[in-house]
């Protein structure tokens, strides 16, 4: 059996005295789309940042594609990975941020080609050809030379998706990708994500878009106060939640 793409076992994360993750365990299979729901401050974004080691976990085990995140296990001991190794592993995990975080001093095309050229040492021609293809896929084939400041929020977010895909990741993390968008721009971004899911990408999506969770997700996980409250098929969790806290949350957002 192939190992799960992401496996978290009793993951704890503290910021100083504040415990944000209090023993989170979950599994994401290859090709699965998982939506993380929950009130703000429940630790969803922190969990995503731990998965690509932007944050270090304090205890528990977290692995991606069968390999520990940030460490190498030798016998009983954990050894910290060197920076280059961490960077190489991150390059296989795409991440899309709430505020896009496009590089404002580069055109859309340069945003997409930057990492393949600098990290994977691809040739400019190859990287550009692929970048044009990707931007075309997200419906921005005519915006390659635009700077982020000349694009709408929805367009920026789609460039950010293309930028992450350019590294050919095996896993995509979405951190509230539509929360900063005007309502009429949300649809295009969700459509791009839906297409990605259809193509078989493994995705973990932190979102408040219940429609997206219901339609696209294979699994929905509800988190609150640093723990997983319940998880299951979207139809079960969203329509027939077993826990009081899930019910309370859903009644507010639906």
């Amino acid at each position: 059996m192939t190992p799960p793409m992401v496996k978290a076992e009793a993951v704890h994360k503290r910021f100083g005295r504040l415990e944000v993750l209090k023993g989170v365990s979950l599994e994401v299979a290859a090709g699965e789309v998982m939506c993380l729901l929950g009130p703000s401050g429940s630790g969803k974004s922190t969990l995503l940042r731990c998965i690509n080691h932007l944050e270090k976990i304090n205890s528990g085990r977290l692995s991606v594609d069968g390999e520990l995140v940030g460490y190498r296990q030798v016998g009983e001991k954990l050894h910290e990975l060197r920076e280059g190794e961490v960077a190489r592993k991150r390059s296989q995990i795409g991440m899309v941020f709430q505020h896009f975080n496009l590089f404002p001093h580069m055109t859309a095309l340069d945003n997409v080609t930057c990492a393949p050229m600098r990290v994977k040492n691809e040739s400019r021609d190859g990287a550009e050809a692929r970048a044009r293809e990707l931007l075309d896929q997200v419906g921005l084939g005519d915006k390659v030379d635009a700077y982020p400041s000349q694009l709408s929020g929805g367009q920026q977010q789609r460039v950010a998706i293309a930028r992450a895909l350019a590294m050919e990741p095996k896993l995509m993390l979405f951190d509230e990708p539509t929360s900063a968008l005007d309502p009429e721009l949300v649809g295009d971004v969700l459509a791009a994500m839906q297409q990605l899911a259809r193509d078989g990408m493994t995705m973990i999506v932190v979102t408040h878009e219940m429609g997206f969770a219901r339609e696209v997700a294979d699994t929905v996980v509800f988190m609150d106060a640093g723990v997983v409250v319940e998880s299951g098929k979207p139809a079960d969790v969203l329509s027939d939640p077993r826990h009081e806290r899930t019910r309370a949350f859903l009644s507010k957002v639906l």
Binding site: N52, L54, A87, M95, F97, F103, A115, V119, K120, M167
Partner: peptide, 9 residues
């Protein structure tokens, strides 16, 4: 964050 998530050192 964005640069590091793309694998830059």
């Amino acid at each position: 964050d964005a640069a590091q998530s793309l694998g830059m050192t």
